[in-house]
Structures are given as C-alpha cells and as structure tokens.
Design a protein around this nucleic acid. Structure first.
Lengths: 339, 339
DNA sequence: ACTTGGCACTCCGAAACGTCGAGTGCCAGC
DNA sequence: GCTGGCACTCGACGTTTCGGAGTGCCAAGT
C-alpha cells in the first residue's frame, strides 16, 4: 500500500514542515525535492497517505501536515541518526571534563543538552538504588549530634543529621562507623537496607538506643528516600515555538515544574538501552500531548544509572536530536566512570 | 503639587490597572472608586499626574497606565504591606518543617514562594563565605584517593575528591584531618583560607606532597569556588502575563537561566535588611526592564546569609508580594536556625 | 480658584468585505 | 499509472467602516 515513492513523499513532507513550520502542498514539494513526477501525482500519493492517517490537513484546501503516526513512521523507517560534528564532540567533552563534582556534572550536562539540541533538557540524577555504597561516615558534630554521610560510587553524597537526648562517646561513633562500613561498603543501596537490619543485635545493650537511631536514619536515607532528583534547563527554548502553540506553552511549563512528571517522562521509555522517542499523544501526560520526548539512559560502564533526554514540539529535528542525546549520554557515562 | 486627591487618583489607577490590565479612564475611575468628584475633574488631575511622569497613555485618547515612577510612588507612599492570613502562615511553616536537609529547605522554599506569590521565585543558597566551618572530614576511598568533605554551620556540605600518584597511609589521613579541624573548625570560611595557608610547614617532609594536595583542594573549595548557587521556580507563572508581553517572555526566560544574572538580581538590593523593590528600568539587566523584583535577605538569627525574592511584571500586587516575601524569609530563617 | 457639563476630536479595535493565491479533487487523455 | 487542465474551496491579508471610550478644552457655575 505504501510504495517507495509515497514514503519518499512522507519524508519530504516531514522535512519541509519541520524546517518551515507551514503546511506543505504538492507543488512546493516537487519544486524543493527532485521527485521526478508532477504535482498531480503527488496529490494522489498524499491522498493515500492521508487515508492511512500519516498526514492531515489543518483545513480543506490547505497543505498537509504530518500526524503523530506520520512522525512515528518517519522516525522508525525514514530517518537515520545524524552524528555530531567533531567540533561539537570536542566541545561536549571539554565542557563536561571541567566538572568538579557530581552536582556539577549533572548541571553541566543539562545545560549542554539544552544548548546542543536547542530544546528543553531533562537530566535525572544517578539513581541511588542502582548504585553502590562506597563509604559511610559518621561525624560527631556536637556531644549529642551526629552527621551521617553516605557516599556512593556514582559520586553522590547524602547527609543527615541525627540528634540524641544524651551525650555520645567518640568510641561509640567509631564502633558503629566501622560496623556499618563492614556491612554495606561495596553493596548496592537496594541490598544495603537488608544488610543492616539485624546489625543492632551485635552491640551491647547500653549502646543500642544510639545504634538504633543511626540505623533508622540510615534506612530512611536508603529506602524511604528514593528521591530521584531531576534537573531541567532550556525552558526558554519553548518560546521558539510560541507561534506554534501560543497558549499551549503554559501547561507545558507547569508540567515541567513537577518533578514527578519529569521522572515519569524519563521512565516511560520502552527500552532504556537505546534512544527512545515518544511522539505527541504517545506521552501519557495530558499537557504534553503536543510535544515529543527523546530520551535514553546513561551510566558508567554499561550499568544504566539514570535517564536523560529532551522535550520539544512534535515538529522537531528528530535525526539531529537523537544523535545529540545519544552522544551526550555517552560522554556523561565516560565522565562518571572516570570519577 | 500633588495634593491628596491626586495621590488617591494614582492609587486608584494602579489598583485598577493591576487587577484589570487595561488602561483606565476617568469615567471608569469615578464609577469604581467613590471619588466624590466628576470625571472632568479627574481628567485634570490625570493631566497633572501625567505631567509629573507618574502615568502615561499608550496612545492618544486611551486610558492611563502607571509608569515605573508611578509604581515607585505607589510602593513608597501609597501601599501598606498586606500580611498573610493565618492559614497561609501555618501552611508555610508546616511545609518548611518537613524539610530533611539544606537542599530540601531551599527547594521547598523556592516552590513555596512561587506558589504563594504566583510569580517566579528565586532563592540563593546560604553563602559559603559568610558561614562558618563546622567540620572537615577526610575519607580514604581507595589507596590513592581521598574524599574531602566540608560541612558548614548552615548545613551546607561540599565534597571534593583528591587523587594521588602513590598510596596514602591511613594515619597520614588522620593526622591531616585532625590538624585541619583544629585550625578551621568554628571559623568563617572567609578566614579559613588564611588559617591553613602555612599548615603544611608543621608536617614532616615526606608527608608534605600529600598535605599540599589536600590543602590546595581545600583552598579551592573555600576561595576559588564562591559558587553562589541559585534555584528558581514558577517560570510557568510568567505566562499568566503572556498577553502583557507576548514576545517579551523570551528574553526574560533566557535571563533567568543565567545563574550570574539571578545572583546579580538578588545582589542589587539597596538595603538587604528590609524588603527591597526594584521596578522596571530600575533593574540593571536589559531583559528585565519590564519586570519588577521584590527581594530580601534571610538568615538564621539576625545573620544575613543569602537573599531570596520573586520576579514578575511591573504590574504586580506589590502589597501582597512584599508581605509574602517577608514572611517566607522569616520562616526560612527560623528553620535554618533550628537545624 | 476649583469644579463641572458640554462638545469636538482622536484613535483603537472589531467587524465586514473583497481579493488573491495556494491548494485540492477529479477527470479525460496520454 | 502518470499528467495537465479545470473548477472549487478556503484561509490570509489588506481595506474600509463604524462605534465607543477616552481625551482636552472651554465656558459657566459655585
């Protein structure tokens, strides 16, 4: 039903519409692409494509516009990922290498992604549950106040203050610190909780209130607080399309302010190992029905830790965006592995 | 020159314009406020106000709109701060009390501020230089890798990894840790740099390469990295005025993405002790000439640590916004003091 | 010296209208 | 199955018209 030329016509429509943002008609098509047939022929093809639901007309006697289904076909079968230029690659690498700690890596990544793709960028912090404990530190801040610092192999650092009614001797702190590290160092955070569950029993009775308090804070940090953080950049890029969706920008901005929405957005990817593209209504969130999300996972050494991606209007340069997202994810992975 | 009635007219114009967003004419004025004179009289007053530069007409034979100067007079002399309702106060307090660490306090504060004022909120992290060192921790992560953790009395935690060519003995780490803490604990970060400058000399020669490396990382953290971080929320609120400035929203969003701009914005306050209001062109940044900034400082126990504020169109509810900013700043101060 | 009603004037915004051109669908012929 | 021709549709755009809100000014009233 869809012969080669029809597919070629669809590709041409998508490309033209992405670059001009105007419904594209049969005549303009044959002029700009060297399809070797007449406009009338194209019109027949267009009718077939419309029949199949790949394109639509905004109103009778206007040009055609790709539908979500049309973009989907385009992405799946008609476009090949556009690699970055060497200059871009170099810029990305040197910019990311300047990062000083994990926060900085994430901040730089998100800004970079926004700049390169000229869309809204979203980066999730390396997940706590999928990373391993590198070290647990207990610091006596005051006679009855202990700071618990949890360091993961992804460079993430979580801290909590634990308060007590009574004074805590330094050697108690040292003992718990040693015991904790012996149990959890090197383990995944998801396993660590189970590993310390019965730890309190190995302490003498008079120490147990203190140990219990520390452990419960620790558990809280490990479990109750899967607190997947997400950062955002490039919202200004939304306004590049203010003419596309003049009042639609409002709900989009609102949706983007919700951490939960962003997380779900990144989590919706079907196969996190590759670059996932969700187009228009394929996104579950109501306000994002007119946008597309291009995302992938990243992580050090093959281990997927978290996701990153960009969001833009369905009318976007998919080839370029996919390439950029993939490249940035790779470089971040390298940087994280090297830390 | 500006008698009481003229001031009253100005107030009425500002109030009407803020709520309706339409140029206000003499007839509508006398109808909505019970000025006890005729429209013709008001017209004379308006002419005088326009003469003085407090109001302007968008075009001949249109109503009047307040100028920056008009808003300034209104804020300085005609409006009194609107206190929050008890319900709002309670909501603020309980919401902030749920915070688990400094990051969380800041994140919650900025969202709260955005929600309460329905504007764009900006919160600066407690400044490093104005807070004191509570503790420095050194952790041996690997034979040749040390993690430096700096904890301030404002709850802020900075970490850096230090790498070496050769193995570091555990007792070397302990020695440096003790020496560092003895020198800097309790000191302001701004003084700490000087306090450790000659610390290396108290170590035996074979330890010095290690000590020097740790100290230089420490100095970097203290000085070269005054990295005043800023967080933002409520950009979606900008679109509430998309009709006011349809295309002006773009540069504003762009400006807001620049950390430096935000910092300068908060820094421009003349007197940080009170709530500062900068209207329209009073803001130095080009893109923010059509916006107003309401900001103040906050901190634990009288000590100003950093600033927070909101940004919105010059046409904003100043009384309410000032009240909200002040209240939030106070509550954050309390929370920080209690940590 | 203010205040007021009246009046002529200005100018924006909305609605109505006509025109233009791009685009379509269909059909007959190649 | 492709092509040129043709009639038709419909939105975009420029022009025109019209009404209303608002102004400034003036002369009269208090």
């Amino acid at each position: 039903m869809l012969d080669d030329r029809k597919l070629e016509v669809l590709r041409a429509i998508v490309e033209d519409f992405v670059s001009t943002n105007e419904p594209v008609g049969s005549k303009a098509l044959v002029e700009r692409h060297n399809l070797r047939v007449s406009p009338a022929t194209i019109r027949n093809d267009m009718a077939a494509l419309e029949e199949g639901g790949y394109i639509a007309q905004p109103h009778t006697s206007a040009g055609r516009v790709p539908t979500d289904k049309g973009y989907r076909l385009f992405v799946d079968r008609l476009s090949s990922v556009k690699p970055l230029t060497p200059a871009e690659r170099r810029a990305i690498q040197t910019f990311l290498e300047g990062a000083v700690d994990l926060d900085d890596v994430v901040r730089r990544t998100v800004r970079l992604l926004a700049q390169v793709t000229r869309q809204v960028a979203v980066v999730q912090y390396p997940s706590l549950s999928r990373s391993a404990v590198r070290h647990v530190e207990l610091v006596l801040l005051a006679p009855a106040r202990v700071l618990l610092v949890l360091i993961t192999d992804t460079g993430r650092v979580e801290q909590r203050v634990v308060e007590f009614a009574e004074m805590i001797p330094e050697d108690a702190v040292a003992g718990v610190r040693a015991a904790l590290n012996a149990r959890v160092a090197g383990r995944l955070l998801s396993e660590a909780a189970a590993a310390i569950a019965d730890l309190v029993e190995s302490f003498p009775a008079e120490r147990r209130p203190f140990v219990t308090a520390v452990l419960s804070t620790m558990l809280e940090t490990l479990v109750e607080h899967p607190d997947e953080r997400v950062v955002l950049a490039g919202t200004a890029n939304l306004t590049r399309f203010s003419l596309d969706f003049p009042l639609t920008i409002r709900p989009v901005l609102e949706a983007l302010e919700e951490q939960v929405v962003l997380l779900r957005l990144l989590g919706e990817a079907t196969d996190p190992a590759t670059v996932s593209v969700r187009i228009g209504a394929e996104n579950l969130h109501e306000a994002l029905r007119t946008t597309s999300v291009v995302s992938t996972s990243y992580g050090a050494g093959g281990q997927a830790l978290a996701s990153l991606g960009v969001l833009g209007p369905t009318r976007m340069d998919y080839a370029g965006t996919i390439g950029a997202v993939r490249a940035v994810a790779r470089y971040v992975g390298q940087i994280l592995a090297g830390t």
